[in-house]
Write a protein that binds this DNA or RNA. Sequence first.
DNA 1: GTCTATACGATGATAGAC
DNA 2: GTCTATCATCGTATAGAC
Lengths: 174, 174
Amino acid sequence: MSTDRKERILLAALELFAMEGYHATPTSKIAKQAEVSEGLIFRHYQNKEGLLQAILQAAERNFQQHLSPILEESNPQKTLRFYISFPFEVPEEEVNFWRLQFKLKWEVNYPKNQKLTPFLDKITWAFRELGYDNPELEAELLFLTIEGVSTAILRDGMERMESTKKFLLKKYGV
Amino acid sequence: MSTDRKERILLAALELFAMEGYHATPTSKIAKQAEVSEGLIFRHYQNKEGLLQAILQAAERNFQQHLSPILEESNPQKTLRFYISFPFEVPEEEVNFWRLQFKLKWEVNYPKNQKLTPFLDKITWAFRELGYDNPELEAELLFLTIEGVSTAILRDGMERMESTKKFLLKKYGV
DNA sequence: GTCTATACGATGATAGAC
DNA sequence: GTCTATCATCGTATAGAC
């Protein structure tokens, strides 16, 4: 129950943008949910787009914080295990960051996320270390599979997907 | 260059909803692109939501027409091959039907597509025929992978994904 | 920092003529 | 069937007081 109104606005907008969408969410609704006046949103974030950008920066920090350890991992098995497990272990309070990322991919003209390249390279490295025939394509395919898995998790919840996680880990022997 | 204005409206709206999104597309823009008066949209489709529903029904027919042959296939290898190849072979003119489906999954409160169950069952059957250990999970995983692949195709185009297609077909030995 | 009041263009939708 | 004109409301944003 924070009383920092600027942050309350950000959290309310994150929730609404993630659940209903950016274009579908009027600033009046954000103000209502955050229990602040509508004008305050524009004082703090200039305009609606500025509010979105602030949320995206917070999401980016969150993202880096959780995924960057994978880049330090020196054991290829552990690297794959970490990567595959990742979408199943996003904390409940942070799911909306992820939901928003996936939503925006379709909603606004979202710049193709180039920040993922280091992770793709790391997975490629892991497959190469493990002696796979075509590490580049293995990595790309796993990447796309995890994208599909994440979509399903965001839609149906993690519980139902437990067996899929186990199955994937077994399939890659990690 | 059809002159059927009702259909011109539908095609313009399909294009715009698929590319920019439902909420981001004003009816004025649809009218402009279809080269009709804005009022005509409401004569033919009652309201914006009705227009969307009409498009969705057309998309559904398109979808059934292309995918239903898979349900008749009696050869399990061919079944998998058909299913894996499918997203790579959507005709250029029909890509927007697919883009819209994927976009709406995130944009509006879209009913979880139960119509896919027969196809999932068919894939499960194919894996069982081929002697896979866990046909249910194999089918679910392939389904999610194809979802990720489709997303990538809609984002980057099919050309760049040719190698991924070959790789997938080889991986499943079909 | 925060609120209330308000401006104002955009948007979905209707009415009425042809 | 189609267009033009028009309306009511919504949505973003600003102004000014406290």
